[in-house]
Design a protein around this nucleic acid. Structure first.
Lengths: 112, 112
DNA sequence: GTCACATGCAACCAAAGGTTGCGTGATGGT
DNA sequence: ACCATCACGCAACCTTTGGTTGCATGTGAC
């Protein structure tokens, strides 16, 4: 199996900078709507709504109708899973880099 | 500054699943060309060449003409930087999640 | 009821990822 | 030296994705 044995959908969901900011905002303000989020972002409400759709589809957020609003909240378990995957990929690359470094050093010793 | 105080270009470079696989392959095989990489990937050589262009532009890989080939190698320092950023974003979200959990527990204690 | 506001929907645009086809330049065998 | 081959680069074209504007709908407040 590949080093990046992760859920590509989940990764690509957090791969977009706007979506990352949205997750930040949702965490910071404990939820929000397309309208409130768009006030803090450089894109329109409709663009935010589409991103919320993406995040919803991969389960990173959930919507709840609240009056005439549609309030979104972060699914903490799913975000934790995404964080774990980020960490995992980073760790894998890190391990490869370290292994390469060890091999390089071994060669150095052998030749030096 | 935002929690995701990272270089968006660098992130979006590793945000693409094909490019992540390419980095894996380049690390595993200690470099490669568009042709050799495409043999292990579900896309054409031309697509791989475009991705290599992206990775090259953000400095994650460097090309070196070698005979009639154009061999690419990972820039270890830059990849380490990318890994650090992945880890950093993950850590930030993780901290927020933990803080939320603590607050929730405090409320629980207060109400219980 | 009516006015305001938050959404939802549709059409339209631009950039990114992908493909095919073709031209070119260096390798290598004869 | 010659020619077939292999690796590349370039260009045209297609599809998806992120973004916009404009308009219709529904819910809340007064």
């Amino acid at each position: 199996m590949s080093v990046t044995a992760i859920d590509d959908e989940l990764w690509s969901a957090v791969g977009d900078p706007i979506r990352r900011q949205m997750l930040d905002l949702l965490l910071a303000e404990n939820g929000g709507t397309a309208t409130t989020l768009s006030e803090h972002l450089p894109v329109t409400r409709q663009a935010v709504a589409k991103h919320l759709g993406v995040l919803d589809r991969v389960g990173l957020v959930h919507a709840r109708p609240l009056g005439r609003e549609r309030r979104y909240e972060v699914d903490e378990a799913q975000l934790a899973r995404a964080v774990a995957q980020l960490t995992s990929v980073g760790a894998a690359w890190d391990a490869r880099l370290h292994r390469i470094k060890r091999i390089a050093e071994a060669i150095q010793r052998g030749q030096g």
